[in-house]
Design a protein around this nucleic acid. Structure first.
Lengths: 265, 265
DNA sequence: CACTATTTGTCCGTATGTATG
DNA sequence: TCATACATACGGACAAATAGT
């Protein structure tokens, strides 16, 4: 029953969280600007209003605004206030489920691939299990990064059974989609199971995607099977939410009209 | 070409991020424990190893471990080290796309609903547009929270056109699924468009979901249409990734065998 | 033109939190 | 545990630019 909240009144910040207050407020408005909730030219609350709304001193409110200003998201002028000075140039790519991003040459923009690491390792238990591997078996682990117009876009970690991995080289990974390499190794791809969640950016991933540590990423984990139902690939992809999102269409199944059942298209 | 990285070497923490170092390290291991990457009984690195790996003083490393200990995630004993003492009791709920979570009375566990706020407002432009409303039209905005076994699970913000909203009361929202209320208002639900992304926890949401501000949440935005293709609901749901994820099965479409096309089941 | 309200810029002193050796 | 350095946050006070009356 948390209802003591007027029109634009905002509840107190998290006191348990040691993240500085000015930074928490900075993050809130940064998000509003990057998601387009606050458009270019929009005026932010005054320092007085902010300190009122969040229950902080004016100095702290000011600092959060200055943080936005030094990163070029807003411009500030005495007597005029704080104005958004950021044009949302790159609307986030959308993907429906008709194709993997692997093959997104769509939308006119091209993406490039960086291979960040490439080696053969004993995979974590969970991955070994999902790939149905014998204990101690090796996998080819590759970390790659996809960029659109030079901006990092997604971070992919793939594990392939060693037998498949040995059929190609590190350099092939930046040239061809990995699913094509698997097919060239003689495995006809048939189906996949996919899990979608969210995860904070690990320091390594944060660096690769050029986002702050701990910022929210969309996570897709997928196990791909060949026609004999043998797992041939485990992939975990972390997407920058400001550059990518999934879209899908659901339609109610006629036979289940009374039961709120749906299926996706 | 970021490849300067040994086996378990971990890169430096984010210096730009003013979040305290001990807290950043705490969050990293908290995540590993909650996601099950570190299972109950597993041993964490020693303070010495941590301070080495992250480039911080031993005191800072110690503090991050103590933070885990005071929250009951690990237990620490002199000479023995730091041991995970957390059993992953509630494996995260999975939903395929055969049913909305609205009606997840499945899996034996029951969920309850809190109504956090309930009012009539002029919606943000983007929502007004997606609901195809005239400028200035009102919507019923309700913020609700879903809990499983007392633990907050998801935060839902719904907007309904005023005409539909007026057909029921605030108290109905905690008793019946909202889609059922819409149907009782005479709208037969036919299809929906859904967008999936990730978002950091806003202070208000963080409080409602009992997670740290800024932690990663799974975001699902859905517009539901009735049989006449008129939008009847806009809903934005934020899920705790440790308690919920989406799962789906993809099968290659036979006709597109050569083009890496898939469709979901 | 002055007058006023608004809003940001700058400065002080002090208390507390973070991180180091 | 201690001493030290630095960052964060507070309240208060005053200056300077902007916009409207």
């Amino acid at each position: 029953m948390v209802d003591s909240r007027a029109e634009f009144q905002i509840d107190a910040l998290d006191a348990d969280n040691p993240t500085p207050l000015y930074y928490q407020i900075y993050l809130i408005y940064r998000q509003k600007i990057l998601t387009g909730a606050l458009e270019n030219g929009a005026r932010l609350p005054s320092e007085e209003e902010l300190s009122e709304a969040y229950g902080v001193s004016r100095i702290t409110a000011k600092r959060s605004m200055n943080e936005l200003a030094t990163r070029g998201l807003v411009s500030r002028t005495r007597g005029r206030g704080t104005i958004v000075s950021h044009v949302n140039t790159a609307p986030s790519l959308a993907s429906d489920f008709s194709g993997f991003v692997e093959d997104l040459i769509a939308i006119g923009t091209t993406t490039t691939v960086d291979v960040l690491s490439f080696d053969y390792v004993q995979p974590p238990d969970q991955i070994a299990q999902q790939l149905n591997l014998a204990p101690g078996a090796l996998t080819q682990r590759a970390e790659r990064r996809r960029l659109r117009e030079g901006v990092p876009f997604s971070h992919m970690t793939t594990h392939l059974p060693e037998g498949i991995g040995r059929t190609f080289e590190r350099s092939d990974l930046s040239a061809k989609p990995i699913l094509r390499l698997i097919e060239e190794a003689g495995h006809s791809i048939a189906e996949a199971t996919q899990s979608i969640s969210a995860e904070p950016a690990h320091p390594i991933v944060a660096q690769a995607l050029e986002v702050p540590i701990g910022s929210a990423l969309l996570k897709v984990t997928r196990v791909v099977l060949n026609q004999e139902a043998v797992p041939v690939q485990h992939i975990e992809v972390l997407y920058r939410p400001d550059m990518y999102h999934l879209e899908m269409h659901l339609r109610r199944s006629p036979s289940e009209q009374g039961h709120m059942k749906w299926f996706s298209l």
